[in-house]
Computed example of a mutant assay.
Amino acid sequence: MKMNVQAAAAAFQFLTRFPVKMTLDYTPELFRRSTRFYPLVGLAVGLTVWIGGAAASYLLPPLPAAVLMLILWVGLTGGLHLDGWMDTADGLLSYRSRERMLEIMKDSRVGAMGVMACVLLLLLKASLIYSLLLGGLPPLLLLLPPVWSRWFMVHAMASWPMARGKEGLAGSYFNGMTREQSMESFLLAAGLTLIAALLSPLLPYGPAGIWNYRGITWLHAGLAWLLLPLAAWAAGWWAGRRMNAKLGGLTGDTYGALNEGIETVLLLVLTILIYRF
């Protein structure tokens, strides 16, 4: 039990800015063990963002409420994954050799491609959150993007090699991840999804106070609970394979990029379900 508590605390300390006060010995074993709790971290992030968004939407119009939700979302992670998104964009969009791409991604400075990728991603996320606030949906569905994007980071660690071997943060602490550890994380993500799906009908309506503003039915909601995990896997696997082909493996930056990309894809899927089906 103590080992699991330490592992969960390590996951929250590493991935978020939640005030988890615990002194830990950060060994590679602890880092690898902590990955099983990444979906739980995603649940905490998603729940905090939803509560903040519900409060903001009662005080403000949907657009500023959506922007505040996004600010809270980024703030809870300290921009960790967003930094990986920018570094990955700088490297992969440079169209250089593998070695040069890895050098660019290692540079702490952000280039033009990283800035453009960051701006476009935040604009898209803000617009999708705004659309969801307007459209109305079972509120606990908003927990799924951060839950499943963090599961896929664990899956990616176990599925593809480290591009820099044992160098760098990812290589030092996450090298040697196994499929069993990925499966532990998957089972937690699936369990959290099932609990959220069962609780969703019991909670108040979303921040907009509307259940079927765009014709959302229980069938649509049920499809969403099933489609979002599948969409997370499909989008992550496609992106991970392309990154692996170009870099000869993945890095800590690409894990962050996968998290940001999958969160956005799942928000997009939710928006499409509301407005087009």
Results as ranks from 00 to 15, higher is better:
81 H>L: 06
87 D>E: 00
86 M>G: 14
89 A>V: 01
93 L>D: 08
85 W>E: 04
96 R>N: 11
74 V>C: 08
67 V>P: 05
70 L>K: 10
90 D>C: 00
71 I>V: 15
75 G>Y: 06
65 A>I: 07
71 I>Q: 10
76 L>R: 02
70 L>P: 02
84 G>K: 04
94 S>I: 09
88 T>D: 03
79 G>N: 10
69 M>V: 14
76 L>D: 00
68 L>H: 09
88 T>G: 08
96 R>G: 11
91 G>C: 12
67 V>F: 10
77 T>R: 12
77 T>G: 10
87 D>A: 06
64 P>M: 04
84 G>N: 07
61 P>M: 12
76 L>F: 00
76 L>V: 00
74 V>I: 15
72 L>W: 12
87 D>F: 05
94 S>T: 05
87 D>S: 01
62 P>M: 12
79 G>I: 06
83 D>A: 05
66 A>Q: 09
63 L>C: 05
81 H>C: 10
65 A>F: 12
62 P>E: 07
89 A>S: 13
74 V>P: 00
76 L>A: 05
92 L>E: 09
75 G>C: 11
82 L>V: 15
94 S>D: 05
86 M>C: 05
96 R>W: 12
87 D>W: 04
70 L>W: 07
94 S>V: 01
66 A>R: 02
85 W>G: 00
95 Y>V: 13
86 M>F: 06
93 L>F: 15
88 T>V: 08
84 G>L: 03
70 L>H: 09
81 H>F: 06
